[in-house]
Simulated assay, not measured.
Amino acid sequence: MNEPIKPIYWDSEDDCLVILDQRKLPENVVWLRIKTLDELEDAIIKMAIRGAPLLGVAAAFGVYIGIKDFEGSKEGFNALFENTLKRIASTRPTAVNLFAALGRAQEVVNIVADADLGELKAAIFEMANAILKEEEEKSYSIARNGARLIEFGSKILTHCNTGALAVGGIGTALGVVYQAFKDGKVDMVYVDETRPLLQGARLTAWELSSWGIPHRVIVDSAAASLMMKGDVNYVLVGADRIARNGDVANKIGTLSLAVAAHTFEVPFIVAAPLSSFDLSAADGTRIKIEERDEEEVLTCGGRRIAPKSSKAYNPAFDVTPARFVTAIVTEKGLIEMPDKSKISEHVAKR
């Protein structure tokens, strides 16, 4: 099996953030060199970079990009820093990892508030590198923990993209697939194409192909029929935000999979790092759902597929109630049949 690609890193020689442009896959492997905050915002909004954990990494480095060239008074730095946080926070509203990274940046600045500008910048850069390393390490722990749940001869269905492209390291739900396949447990992976931007068909299939894992791409609406026929042993998905009660916000279409899995008694497993938990959100109704440009639905491959007079509704995410979740896998272990008390106990583990 090939090693997972690293979709984001800091180039110290060119003093910039380098990201894999996921819009160009699978046809072309294109790397973007991000040197300004404007470029970072554009990359996030237009989904050159995506995936909740990876958005947290990008946000952390984005803070550094926003302030690294500043020379002036401490008051001027503070104003620039606050504006940088606001700009990054306004890019995409659902993935909690992005906001967690911004919160850590604020904590760092508060701790070293009396330091000079050079020390402040160094502390923020160190924080960004720490978040990247943490997310990579967490992903391997999630993969190992989740693979223990998978039985030999399994057929797994997954949605959107939750591999190295979304996290760094090995991924979350797709990381579980990777590890379980290495362990000899996976016979087939069914890949939801994941309309409208086809992250499953473009990205997940690309990663599985590079790893040599047998898979089939399916239209999203084929998933329930596969479950009904007994051709799916597990549904594995990631999460962009998990509420305190276990409700899960993830790529649009996840709720449909969860309802189908519940109906046909297929285990529905969520794989996510603790950085994707939002204990300030009591339940899924508190999670803001991003709505994207309707043209993503009305066009495909740059070609209009609906009448010019047609409009579209394009939420990027939906919320799956905790009652449909069999288990959540994190870097700390497993939360079976998640609820508020189980999540609180799990998060408190050391």
Rank of each mutant, 00 (worst) to 15 (best):
N83L: 09
L85F: 01
L85N: 02
L85V: 05
K86M: 00
K86C: 06
R87S: 15
R87H: 13
R87M: 10
I88M: 14
I88T: 13
I88L: 14
A89L: 06
T91W: 11
R92K: 15
R92C: 14
R92L: 12
P93M: 01
A95K: 07
A95C: 07
V96K: 08
N97Y: 11
L98K: 08
L98P: 01
L98Q: 04
F99K: 03
A101I: 10
A101G: 12
G103L: 02
G103I: 02
G103N: 03
G103Q: 09
R104W: 06
R104H: 10
R104M: 13
A105W: 08
A105E: 07
A105C: 12
A105H: 00
V108K: 08
V109L: 13
I111Q: 14
V112R: 04
A113T: 06
A113Y: 13
D114S: 08
D114N: 09
D116F: 03
D116V: 04
L117Q: 07
G118L: 12
G118C: 12
G118M: 10
E119P: 05
E119L: 12
L120A: 05
K121W: 12
K121P: 09
A122E: 06
A123C: 00
I124R: 10
E126H: 00
E126D: 11
E126Y: 05
M127V: 10
M127L: 15
M127D: 09
A128H: 09
A128G: 12
N129R: 09
N129C: 07
I131G: 02
L132N: 15
L132Q: 12
L132H: 15
E136A: 06
K138C: 14
K138H: 14
S139G: 08
S139A: 04
Y140H: 04
Y140Q: 03
Y140R: 12
S141F: 02
S141P: 02
I142M: 08
I142E: 09
I142C: 02
A143C: 05
R144V: 14
R144F: 10
N145S: 09
G146S: 08
G146K: 06
G146D: 14
G146V: 11
A147I: 06
R148N: 15
R148D: 15
R148Y: 12
I150A: 07
E151F: 02
E151W: 03
F152K: 11
F152T: 05
G153I: 01
G153W: 05
K155M: 13
L157W: 03
L157S: 01
C160T: 10
C160L: 09
C160S: 13
N161I: 13
N161L: 13
N161H: 13
T162G: 00
T162N: 05
A164R: 00
L165C: 10
A166S: 10
G168A: 03
G169W: 03
G169K: 01
I170L: 03
I170G: 00
I170Q: 02
T172F: 05
T172D: 01
A173F: 00
L174S: 12
L174E: 11
G175R: 03
G175W: 01
